[in-house]
Amino acid sequence: MLILLVDQVLKFWIKTNMAIAEQFPMISDWFYIHFIENEGMAYGLKFGGEFGKIALTLFRLVAVVIGFFYMKKLVREKYHTGLLICGALILAGAAGNLIDSMFYGLIFSASTRYEVAQFLPEGGGYGTFLHGNVVDMLYFPLFDGTLPSWVPFWGGEHFIFFRPVFNIADAAISVGVIAILLFQKRFLVKKTEETHPTVETGAIVDDRQQVM
């Protein structure tokens, strides 16, 4: 719930305070808040045009519902806390982008390079149900320069790392998935109940025994 809240609060602020492609630095020249929107998957990837967008939104909805019940199962069966945390990150990230896709087209006017979006505009939103765009804003150009000429294929070309712009939801999904892959041997086990030896009640104790 905390990840979902932070994700949506930041997106709401970005949407109602910034125009498309507007940016400002957060830390030096390697971390910016840079507002873009995407119609598809995480990190700006797209899938299959208009039909693909609806299919992707419905897929997110099904994934979130299944993920919620699967998380309940993992908690009930007492799986490793690390797995539960990673699962919660993935579920929160999927839900965050799902909210954008389902409702942002209804509740916001369009964001452009020259106009900031309005919340609940009089003429209605920029899209219909399931046709909202996902808001992205986290941009980390850790390296921005020209590659050395000896680099195969791209030598001498301008190169930016890390180029994709993403959001809190994307980051939560990525961290959750990577952590599960790295620690799967530790995470994918159930907790076992500890057993302790018991003393039989009513047993006769010999008072002649002494502790040496």
Rank of each mutant, 00 (worst) to 15 (best):
V75C: 11
T16M: 08
L10P: 02
P141W: 09
T112D: 03
K53P: 07
I3T: 13
T198K: 13
G49P: 11
Y114R: 08
L84G: 00
K53D: 07
I3W: 13
T195M: 12
F183I: 04
M41G: 10
L83S: 00
A171P: 09
L147C: 11
G93V: 03
F51S: 13
L98K: 02
G202P: 00
L74G: 04
G52R: 05
M18W: 04
V165T: 12
S101W: 05
V62L: 14
I20S: 10
I168A: 11
D29I: 07
N97S: 06
S174Q: 06
I99V: 15
A42H: 04
I66N: 05
F68V: 14
K190W: 07
K185V: 07
K78Y: 09
G202W: 00
S28D: 13
M212W: 11
V151K: 09
E39Y: 05
S28K: 14
T81P: 06
K185Y: 10
L61V: 13
L91T: 06
V165R: 04
V64K: 06
Y139P: 10
Y70C: 12
G123Q: 04
I85K: 00
F183C: 02
T195I: 13
F183T: 00
F140G: 09
S111W: 00
P121E: 07
M212C: 06
C86S: 02
T192F: 07
K46E: 15
Y43L: 15
I168N: 06
I180N: 00
M26F: 13
I178Y: 01
Q8D: 09
G176A: 01
G96N: 07
V165G: 08
P121N: 06
P197F: 11
N167R: 00
G49N: 10
P25W: 02
S28F: 11
G105A: 01
I66V: 15
G123C: 03
N97L: 03
V6L: 15
L58V: 14
P25K: 01
